[in-house]
Design a protein around this nucleic acid. Sequence first.
RNA 1: GCCAAAGUGGCGGAACUGGUAGACGCGCUGGACUCAAAAUCCAGUGGGUGCAAACUCGUGUGGGUUCGAGUCCCACCUUUGGUACCA
Length: 805
Amino acid sequence: MKYDFSAIERKWHARWAEEHTFITGTDQKKPKYYVLDMFPYPSGSGLHVGHLEGYTATDIVSRYKRCRGYNVLHPMGWDAFGLPAEQFAIKTGTHPRLTTEINVANFRETLKSMGFSYDWDREINTTDPDYYQWTQWIFLKLFERELAYMSEIDVNWCEELKVVLANEEVDEKLNDGYTVIRRPLRQWVLKITAYAERLLEDLEGLDWPENVKQMQRNWIGRSEGVEIDFELPCHRTNLRVYTTRPDTLFGATYLVISPEHPMAEKLAIARQLVEVKNYIARAKLKTELERTGLQKEKTGVFTGSYAINPANGEALPVWISDFVLTSYGTGAIMSVPAHDSRDWEFAKKFDLPIREVIKSPHDVEEAVFEGKESCCVNSSNDEISIDGLDFRTAFIRMASWLESKGKGRRKVNYKLRDWVFSRQRYWGEPIPVRHYDDGSMSPEPCLPLTLPEVEAYHPTSTGESPLANIEEWLYGADEHGRFRRETNTMPQWAGSCWYYLRFIDPQNRQSLIDPSKEHYWMNVDLYIGGAEHAVLHLLYSRFWHKVLYDLGVVSTKEPFQRLFNQGMILGEDNEKMSKSRGNVIPADHVLSTYGADAVRLYEMFLGPLEQVKPWNTNGIEGISRFLGKVWRLVWDENATEPKTTAGLPDEAILRRMHKAIRKVTEDIEQLKFNTAISEMMVLVNELHKAGCTSLVAIETLLVMLSPFAPHITEELWQKLGHTESISGVPWPSFNPDLANDDILTIAVQVNGKLRGTFMVPAGSSKELLLDEAKRVESVLKFLEGQKIIKEIVVPGKLVNFAVRP
RNA sequence: GCCAAAGUGGCGGAACUGGUAGACGCGCUGGACUCAAAAUCCAGUGGGUGCAAACUCGUGUGGGUUCGAGUCCCACCUUUGGUACCA
């Protein structure tokens, strides 16, 4: 019988669908395992082999866990709101819903041909009103708790596209030749900063890659410092700065405020006013990117005013510079050029004094010294001295002194900023809020508030979304009076913030999720996706989850217990796959040529899951050969009956088999699929070499292989006389006595160089090993005429003689 | 610039807590089967010297620790990812 993968795969896809083989178990007495993929945006270009990597990995884990007796939740859905469908609509007039439907159908088909064991009954789509009703519901909860508010904020405004861009999009658009300016716009903002501390703290208990945790910590950017008031004698007010280095206060030689600081113009003395106004105007024109990233040389302007250093009474000049960020701290800093590289650079450029207050190994006029390890110097006044103190002590002493004088207070700051949540687009969840003539707002009483049909998908010239053009949808009246609906929609992040919850209870009409189901299934036990979501998606999701936790909707503090980032698959040219490079390997193509089992195995065999690695279509041949060999373990070329025989294989094969069970089991648990496959290849090679037809050996192999290559194993399993699906068969266990070698090869080294080997039974004594080692012929000549000065014996491994003439 | 990860045959990669470097696969070479091919099977395949046995070098570079280093330490080089003055 020949191995015809396409017939076999078609047959089993139909069978699995018919019999609902992968329907999620609901018996709550069984242990559960929730395996989640980062669900895709269904793009028009379809799936390529890179997309399938993570999905294959989760599918293997799902199938494995089912064999181990777990109820497995393994769902799939679509993050289908988003810009590409909208831009396509602008160009062609095709409704984004239609585009989305077509793309989803295409994606679903590809995923099904891979044989992924998703529970398709739980499929969700973020653009489905039944789904986004609850996205809106969560928004209203945020609104009620004042975690969603409106604010006039500077946004990245793209003139040509008439849209606001996210910071991470700015670069991309600039590269595409668009112009981006900063412009204030009334926006919805989510108060993620209220959760900064919890988002930081709760990272500790998560089983995530350390680098992702670190990135989140950096993004949140907690810092402990002091706010210090510098008196402005001519203005009868104070200038408040934030610093994490109060220990260097005596070294402050000037202050700098940002161009947007409310005092910026007021501080300018008559002689400086023109220059200051010019500087502020120029700063406005720059985008955030120009002000920060690309800027090499520091710029600034002196206001002409002075502020009093509370520590020593010195009058310090106040400067304006755009390297000081408005949105962080107080928008004003004290400059200590001796011990901060930015301040040092600025001081050198504008010839401002530099004063050493931390004992430095070199002249601070020549180079900055930022170390915190040495002690304070030149830092005392009549009331306080911190000379000789280390950073911590000086920090505390200075902070308390300032507090006692009413000149400062300790303060924790975060880099994290509130999340701009509105988009001026059509294809997103409408924000369900009504605005009244008097400026008040109220939530939409009825959810979902669905997207109306529109004539044109272009944003309005004012920057409002296309929804602003639909008068009959826009206006209405209720008991509060006349209202205008909110025309902003939510960003694409919204739907993906909580989708993992809806999979648990996708059809629920009464509530977002049923508490007992939530209790059973949460947390997500394994979440696999690309590293590009390390910060934003995962942080936003965690934020919403914590809000839901506070609302009592979920019972866990964190959504994703174990996170794993798969590495990207590059094109055959070792470059990132992209249309423009023409190196994209479409999934459908390799699927039809080699079949799902081969593609699945090859995706995993390519290398470690977390690693970036190039695709090589030639390599898949080896996998095809392997599958052919597996097939021929059961069938001879023209046979009509399997050639398997009852009974155990001989001992050597049995040992090999138990070794393989152990290795494959351990490797799957650690997501080391490449070495698991390699181990099964070794086993198959051995079975062939030994001409083994033992049913026990072959069936064990099939079960181990079934999570990786479900179709061929189902088929062979059935042909061996089983009526039930292989996907429900218990996972084999190994016997440690058989998995360990009984005869070991011991290496013999002389001065660390391998000079021979010998074989001994496992568990042989050190003495025996030493004796044997000295009798190995190839070793003797290296010992001859030498004095053995040391004998090292590692039981079960090697013997090493250190010798000298 | 800073932070993180990684550098192993022609290629993808393997190597448990320091203990026989190169598993497994691709590719390549030779052979068997065949009229021929495909498929399959067998043997070989890091470099160098050698008919061979064998010896020797070898895990980015240079040092170090150790009986022994791909693995640990120091310095440097390269690549990839992240980040952009957060006071």
